[in-house]
Design a protein around this nucleic acid. Sequence first.
DNA 1: CCAGGCAACTGGTCAGACCAGAAGATCTTC
DNA 2: GAAGATCTTCTGGTCTGACCAGTTGCCTGG
Lengths: 265, 265
Amino acid sequence: MSTDTDTGTDSGGADRVPFEPIQPVRAYQRVAEQIEERILGGELPPGSRLPAERELVKQFAVGRSTIREALRVLQSSGLIRSRPGDPQGAEVLGVSPDNLSQALARLARSSLSGLGELVQFRMVLEAESYRLAARLRSEDDLARMTALVDLMEEAAPARPRAFSEADADFHRAVAEASGNALLALCARAVHDAVVGVIEGKLTGSGGDAGEWMRRSVAHHRQVLAALRTGDAHRAAHLGRRALYEHYAEFVAPEERELLRAALDD
Amino acid sequence: MSTDTDTGTDSGGADRVPFEPIQPVRAYQRVAEQIEERILGGELPPGSRLPAERELVKQFAVGRSTIREALRVLQSSGLIRSRPGDPQGAEVLGVSPDNLSQALARLARSSLSGLGELVQFRMVLEAESYRLAARLRSEDDLARMTALVDLMEEAAPARPRAFSEADADFHRAVAEASGNALLALCARAVHDAVVGVIEGKLTGSGGDAGEWMRRSVAHHRQVLAALRTGDAHRAAHLGRRALYEHYAEFVAPEERELLRAALDD
DNA sequence: CCAGGCAACTGGTCAGACCAGAAGATCTTC
DNA sequence: GAAGATCTTCTGGTCTGACCAGTTGCCTGG
């Protein structure tokens, strides 16, 4: 295993960094780097505009295809967005989490990790998110979450879309209260990935939607109570437990051990 | 907050999904999607080769610039790699965590999430990784880890490169033992991002490297012992504690609360 | 049998052209 | 004068054809 970067046991013995093999740097790459640098550096703030492609051609003194490939790279990283016909040039979006969720989704999709790992990872992230939120939440956060759970209860069986919207907002509020945007983003990305995989498997298998929503609301109320009293341990446990119960049936039996290992602490 | 996707409380009241606004799909995008689909789907496994660009032009019936922009997107996602003059065409790399760490690094660089969040996230991931490893590790895993810690001790003060190589390998082994590749990849990505940010700040501030290595070895031995006895709680605690002690000084004071909240459980 | 060189690829880049879309200016009509 | 239709001129998206610099492998001359 770990056949990559096996420079660990250098034959030479001398622990000196060898000369790096010089590798050609493509023109489009340097263009992309320059623009990315300006975006990340604060010049070119989100909302501002890049010059038109033909103008960039003049400024960088390269062909248009080079410029376009550079812009494509930046666009696929979510840093800019371009619209045909826009006379103002490409729009700077700034750094966004979309790229991260995209990368996570790819990792999840590749058979590199099965549903078991995905759910296990989500258990970890969500539980820790709860744990932190229980410690750091403000009264304001609590009020907002309470309102969202109320919203879920109202929408209970009749409006599934409103229900899941409120559900997602609740989790976003928790993540916000936990104070860690990164954790929130990853949790959301993994959530999306799990939902994507589950949808793949035939989800028609029984299950009363109304009953499920009712239980979900009850669960959220429990979590909310734990967050209110600052019981970090209990909040984390609730999060793990709920995910386990909800998803264990979808996970292949040989992967269940993973989930059980992640269950208690 | 949460101004995005605010279709939650639809004015219409009817909980029906509205027609989606049709948006033009660029040609390069569809080309990229088709190729990505094949890579993620398992055809075109890592190591295989894409047809030459001029061949793809014929197969997709589009211009070469379109093909090239599509390949650029895939390349910036880390899915393929192309080398000028390679008569075999672009190489399929498969899904890799590099893109993830790149996205994380960008998020970290943009003030969107500071070093505090990054370290906190790493505390969470590493602790959970330890926790799972303590439950699921095999004797084989333990033997491998022991060997790696021994390697660290040997390389102790004289060969820092070998030391950090063994260190990285140890963490990789732990992640492997935890049975969750996703967790491992994220942990690695966050690790890289943290290192990148720390390097940005002037790292010259004192600190005896030899002493630090010695303590690091001791810490790894403790973790190893906890993993051996299956003490999940202790292993997780050790991981959190070590990260906190190692990085707290670099984190801005107003962000330290984040770390402290993540510290104990 | 081997080395040097040639030929046939490859990807990287450039130049120029055309198209459809968007936006503002201009013109027409009431 | 104001509202609407048209026009101009920009934009990005795409295609074509060309050239360059590498890489590879065959192939010939030793």
